[in-house]
Amino acid sequence: MHKFIFTLLLPVIGVAQQKSFNIQGTAPATKNGCKVYLNYQIDGKLLSDSTVVKNGQFNFKGSVNELSYARMVFDHENKGSYWVLNIGDRSYFYLANETYQVAIKDSLKKATFSGAPTQKAYASYLSKIGGGFMNIIDSANQEMSAAEPSAVPAIRKKYDDKFAAMRDKEKIFIKGNPNSYFSIVALTDVSNSAPMSEVEPLFNSLGEKVRNTTPGREMKARIVATHTIQVGLAAPDFEQPDVNGKPVKLSDFRGKYVLVDFWASWCHPCREENPNLKKAYGELKDKGLEVLAVSLDDKQTRNAWIKAIETDGLPWIHVSDLKGWQNQVAVLYGIRAVPQNYLVDPAGKIVAQNLRGPELSTKLAAFIH
């Protein structure tokens, strides 16, 4: 057991031991000319790279400041990234500043990864929890796509049970490996189904280095939000720039009811909800309602954010720091999905949350007279 824990400690401290990563890939000569894509994140920003197989080889180089969950995709038919990133031949792994050897025989999904201690540790972690999230998702999608509609409920139940079993194993792993980076990975998944009252003590049991990783800090913020972002409590103040770069504070609207609306241009349910919000805003703005929309768009989708405001005709105030899911207000409020909103009264207290639907005007009018 101690040997296993030591192996899994490597990813926590290993990123700083080498200044860059080097992915050295090999593939059959018949794959010459095929494109390979790599996606990973640094400080919440999605980075993309691509290369072409030449003389049976391909290579990626770069650097990360912390372990990054990465996706590599092999485009066998050069269909283009749009088609292959989510349904193509792909592999998920954790990227550190290490040297990886990737040997492809027939597919990337079945390729051999070697050389990097992080990958060895990740493979060991997956074996402990029974395969991992994406393996279950891929198997479920494959089975459902070939099934008759009548069989779908049973298939969904089968894979829901697999997820439940995996999360039980993740909890065991967390308790046995408090200093492993993969314990915060496991806890992040556990938190998708478990209440924060169960997540918080597991988080507190982790080592300091693990709690201070990026996913550790995000989990801490979510835990804090469960205690501070509640109906009946004061809404934490915040400041973010509007579409013109002018700073806007929540406290600027003290004396009014403010619906703090978390959304994004790429969020279809958000866009579908906008007509309901427009109707409510039109009926209640003269009675003291303001809408402060916080977008989870990032720098790459800034233009889409501006266009969505114009296309949907949204006349209220819009702000964003363009950091995507790492938006500081979203982190402060523990936002894990959009759309989501909080109604703040004239004194700055949260009085309702997640008000939406065709009855939104009526729901808001119950507060705003």
Rank of each mutant, 00 (worst) to 15 (best):
S68Y: 12
D75P: 03
R71V: 13
V319A: 04
S180K: 03
L202G: 00
R167M: 06
A70M: 12
L250R: 07
R90N: 06
S183D: 02
A116N: 09
I350V: 01
I229F: 00
T311Q: 13
L47Y: 13
K279H: 05
K285C: 03
S320F: 06
N274L: 08
C267W: 13
L46K: 14
K220M: 10
A308Q: 08
L9T: 07
H76T: 03
I229T: 03
V231I: 15
I13K: 13
D261I: 07
K349A: 07
D237C: 02
A111S: 15
K31R: 10
V329P: 02
N204H: 14
S63I: 06
R156M: 02
D286V: 00
E272V: 15
N141K: 13
S139Q: 14
G132P: 04
D75C: 01
M144G: 09
K363I: 02
Y181W: 15
G313T: 04
A154V: 08
W325Q: 12
K158N: 09
P241H: 08
E273P: 08
T99I: 12
D160I: 00
I306K: 13
D189V: 08
E170Q: 14
G56S: 03
P201L: 11
D312T: 07
I184T: 15
V199F: 06
S295D: 12
L360Y: 00
K157S: 10
L10E: 11
N135M: 01
R302F: 12
N179C: 02
F93G: 02
F262Y: 09
A146C: 10
A221W: 10
D242M: 08
T51V: 10
G62K: 11
Q24C: 13
Q240M: 10
K79L: 10
I104F: 02
A154F: 12
L202W: 01
E359N: 10
I309Y: 06
Y333I: 05
V338D: 01
N274Q: 12
K256T: 04
L284K: 04
L322I: 08
L126D: 00
K175P: 04
N78C: 03
E290Q: 10
R302G: 07
R217A: 10
V351W: 04
W263F: 13
K171C: 03
P247M: 15
S63M: 11
V52E: 14
K158I: 05
S81W: 07
L314M: 15
A347R: 06
S63G: 09
T228C: 00
V199N: 00
Y37S: 06
V12S: 09
A103Q: 15
A154M: 12
K220L: 14
Q24R: 14
P215S: 09
R167C: 01
K220Y: 02
L250A: 01
R156V: 09
Q340F: 07
A27E: 03
V210D: 00
I223F: 04
N97V: 14
Q142W: 08
N55L: 03
K158F: 04
A147D: 15
K158T: 10
H227E: 14
Y257S: 07
L360S: 03
E310R: 05
N177M: 07
I184E: 05
S107M: 06
G245N: 14
F253E: 05
N212I: 08
Y257T: 05
P275R: 08
